[in-house]
Design a protein around this nucleic acid. Structure first.
Lengths: 244, 244, 244, 244
DNA sequence: AATGAATGAGTTTTCATTCAT
DNA sequence: CATGAATGAAAACTCATTCAT
């Protein structure tokens, strides 16, 4: 279905997403948005206070969705594991009852990031926008960190319902940094650069995505199995395997 | 020593670096650069053909440096390993003669990325600029891939000298993707966001950098040791360790 | 009772009065009027042909009232004095039969301007509007002179009824100028600036108004008693005082 | 000499004065100013930060001049009278040594207002602008009062030099109000409306000005001679005349 | 080298007014 | 009456670039 059937405001939003993602906020003119959305330029100011207001709206919408998305998926899973005793958290460290539990956790994480990847790919344009603007000293500046922050910002009412397991998110600082730079950022960058990378390598998006997931699994298994560095699980059974 | 003592052209470059990094190319005006550099606006056009020309100059300088940097460091090391037989490359797979060889390789990689990290942090502003502009559909400035590409772009004269070992870089596609999204991009992003992340977490840059390096070593060891997925070394001796 | 209970049209008018008085005609937008009046912007165009039409309506209403007000008050008084012979008008000069007649005239003038002052204060916003627009070279809206003009503009039907005494207004040119710049304009300016002046001097409106009236009486007495200059009353008894 | 020979900035200022005076600040567009000044629109923004900045500049310039003008003329005169004992100021009241002194004072005032009138007429456009904008709730809002205020604002260093006679300006409140509404405002309004009034009455500006001055003298003499009300000179000789 | 002035072509934003319901 | 949406025209302001010196 074409854009022309959508309501004007939606067309404006779509046009802004497309153009901001392609050319950045500063590189996009309101006239271009109007043209792309096939609306009168003044109508954009009927719906949005300013050009910056459009960006705010887009970013806010995505952040809200990502947060909701994470809460709907990860929290219940981890909460369940904590509840049934297969996962305990002691002084910043994750302890799994047994191999099955740790494998189950790995599967959950993999599944979560798989879905996050899908989500990011689906909204790759807004991801691009957030990354672009996060690099600037903008209002939108901190939004990349906000995406990570939802686990830390404990007083936001949105998390109040999961207070029982919130300590599970009190990751070690190493793990948090790892999570940002080796998990979230790769996912976002993959989503942002997928098209370009596909064009260069001539591989289809599907192939690249599979490859990315394979890599990702290496990452995940590396923090669960071998990484006393990250998880500080000195007595972790997997570690002894390596020591031999 | 203050900026004011520097030559005008250098002041212009420094101002452009600072402002492009903070606000992006489109978000920066030539007037701002002039003001920051404390020069007359028209003087900028004496030294640079256009605003875009300043960006080109900055990016080109960095890319040349990074490329030179890589060539000076990694290539000799790998070349040496190939020469002395401790590393062989067969059909896209790396084969190490023994554990020492593979450990030596890991150390080399770690050292390389440690230095790359230092380099990126030192030039964090230009890194930011390259990331910013790479996210735009500005064909002319997708330099992020160029940073990765130097190993593929075989006809650039700059690589002609290393033709003997170039097959060593003919990594598997998985590995190449891994290298981009889980190694290069994390390094660049860390450099770009280091200041912001430091501000948020209240940890000093040194602490964060150490943490990053610890994480990075997990990544490196994971591709060498456990990852038949990435290296396809089905009979790899390290793997058998794990199987036991 | 709040504005919200008034009919929409009345709310629009009140809003326009307030805003035109505060910001001038050009400085006020139709949207602001709509917001202030709590009506839909389009509704304003249901009641008024255009923005200018609102101004016309406001000004016309005031002018009609002032004119009516003047006619109802001054004309009968002067007419009566002319009728009973206590005042004669010869070649542009007012001649009073005796001191009582002249004092009676002064009282009448004072009373008139007292009431005009009340009226102007009551409608201080429209006064402001008229003054504002009169200062522009907007031919259509130089209503300040129209306020003075009603005595000259002989073919307006509104004055036709007072043709018997119109010669009483055929003041000398000096007097007319005096009347405009030292009587009407001070009254209008006092009404327009009363609030501001009160805020600056910290005196209540009542105190200022009393002060203004005292000043005004000095003015009035000065033209009646001492001003052969203005009234050309060569044999005026008060003049002899001065000669001495 | 034509405008075209003047420097661009001066042409812009002249154009702004003309247009603001004719159409008000809000009624004038920057394009019109550019056209009138025969400069590129952007050049206006080279010299002035914004449209409002032009207005500020004009108003500030006039206020500075008027203040200087007043200081240069009135203060020395009054100072001199206080010095030589012909004028004493006791509890807000002016006391003149003799008739000569009071006549001298009247002459001084007349001369001052004559010059002020000339000055206002010469700058009638800026006077119009100040009056226009004083009526609005602008930045320029209080400028009309500032014109009056220079005698009150005792801590401005500009008046420090005349501290010996500053109490002479500590007029009674009545007198101050009188001075504003029956002296300053008439002068400003005459300057502002002179052209219009001349057009309507068909009298030349010279004739009108003479008429205005005659009227003004009546005003002046009325506050000096007859106005115990304003000056509270209970023992004033003229007053006894009236009591009889 | 260096600069103050200038400019054309744009940019964001505003606004009086109208339309369709 | 009432209103949300829409629009053409023009407003204020910006900016990369050039010119003359």
């Amino acid at each position: 279905m074409g854009n022309s059937e959508l309501e004007a405001k939606e067309r404006i939003i779509n046009a802004a997403v497309k153009l901001f993602a392609e050319k950045g906020f500063d590189g996009t003119t309101v006239s271009e948005i109007a043209e792309q959305a096939q609306v009168n330029k003044a109508l954009i100011y009927y719906y949005f206070k300013s050009k910056a207001d459009i960006l705010d709206y887009l970013v806010q919408t995505l952040l809200t969705n990502v947060t909701k998305f994470t809460m709907d998926f990860v929290h219940p899973t981890i909460e369940k594991m904590v509840m049934d005793g297969s996962l305990t958290v002691e002084s910043d460290q994750l302890h799994f009852r047994d191999l099955t539990a740790s494998e189950s956790f790995v599967n959950t994480i993999n599944e979560y990031y798989g879905k996050l990847l899908d989500y990011a790919l689906e909204h790759r344009q807004i991801v691009r926008i957030i990354m672009l603007e996060s690099l600037k000293e903008n209002e939108a500046h901190n939004n990349l960190f906000k995406m990570l922050d939802f686990s830390r910002n404990k007083d936001e009412r949105i998390y109040s319902s999961i207070s029982q397991v919130e300590h599970a998110y009190n990751y070690s600082n190493d793990l948090e940094l790892f999570r940002l730079f080796f998990m979230l950022i790769p996912v976002l960058n993959f989503a942002a650069y997928c098209d370009d990378y596909s064009k260069i390598t001539k591989f289809s998006e599907e192939v690249l995505k599979d490859s990315f997931i394979r890599s990702f699994k290496v990452i995940i298994s590396s923090i669960i199995k071998g990484s006393d560095i990250l998880l500080h699980n000195n007595n972790h059974p997997e570690r002894s395997d390596e020591d031999r």
